[in-house]
């Protein structure tokens, strides 16, 4: 490596004198005859400016850029964890609200059931009373009607017997018989027994 560098250095030195000699024609048309990388005459220049720019860059990166980016990143991490915690809290709250809603719903349902049962019992009571009342009335009316029917039937019976006796007596009289009232009644009753039953 050292010998190579020496060779390069001699080449570069030759070139250097050449380029100084032809410095009037310096410009775009210049071409590299050797490796420009091994031109030792430019090393000092490159190293000098490189060290300056590296120092500036290091100062900027270490003092300004990295603390700032680090702060932004940790802020974001904090914001994300904060948001996650808030979200967790909200989720808990939502769960609580849901439980409360469910409970209210169940309560309302139970209340409604209770009211329905109470109403039903009341209605049943009223209904029972009304039915009993109606039954009693119906029974009273029925017995009354039965009484009347019986009365009517009885009266109709006796009327028919009177008519039959009268007719029988008249008939006997018309045929010229003696009218034995007792015998006629007996006969009519005997006949009527079969008819009026």
């Amino acid at each position: 490596m050292i010998s190579l560098l020496e060779v390069a250095a001699t080449v570069a030195a030759d070139e250097y004198t050449e380029s100084v000699a032809s410095s009037v024609a310096y410009g775009e048309s210049e071409t590299a005859t050797g490796l420009p990388q091994l031109d030792l005459s430019t090393f000092g220049n490159q190293i000098f400016w490189l060290i300056i720019s590296l120092l500036v860059l290091y100062w900027v990166v270490a003092k300004i850029a990295l603390p700032r980016i680090g702060a932004v990143l940790s802020d974001r991490q904090g914001a994300i964890t904060g948001d996650l915690m808030a979200a967790e809290e909200f989720k808990l709250k939502a769960k609580e609200a849901e439980a409360a809603y469910d409970k209210a719903l169940a309560d309302a349902r139970a209340e409604a059931g209770k009211i329905v049962a109470a109403n039903r019992a009341e209605i049943q009571k009223d209904l029972d009373a009304a039915i009993a009342h109606a039954d009693a009335e119906i029974a009273a009316r029925a017995s009354e009607s039965e009484g009347r029917i019986r009365q009517i039937r009885d009266s109709a019976d006796s009327d028919a017997r009177d008519v039959a006796r009268d007719v029988a007596a008249e008939l006997v009289r018309a045929f010229g018989g003696t009218t034995d009232q007792a015998a006629i009644d007996q006969a009519v009753d005997r006949r009527m027994k079969g008819v009026l039953q």
Binding site: S41, T42, F48
Partner: peptide, 20 residues
């Protein structure tokens, strides 16, 4: 890859502003 002075023609000293 040639190192050239930016503002003047001539040799490259250690302080010369170049394309580097």
């Amino acid at each position: 890859f040639i190192v050239r002075p930016l503002f003047s023609d001539g040799p490259v000293h250690w302080y010369t502003p170049t394309n580097v």
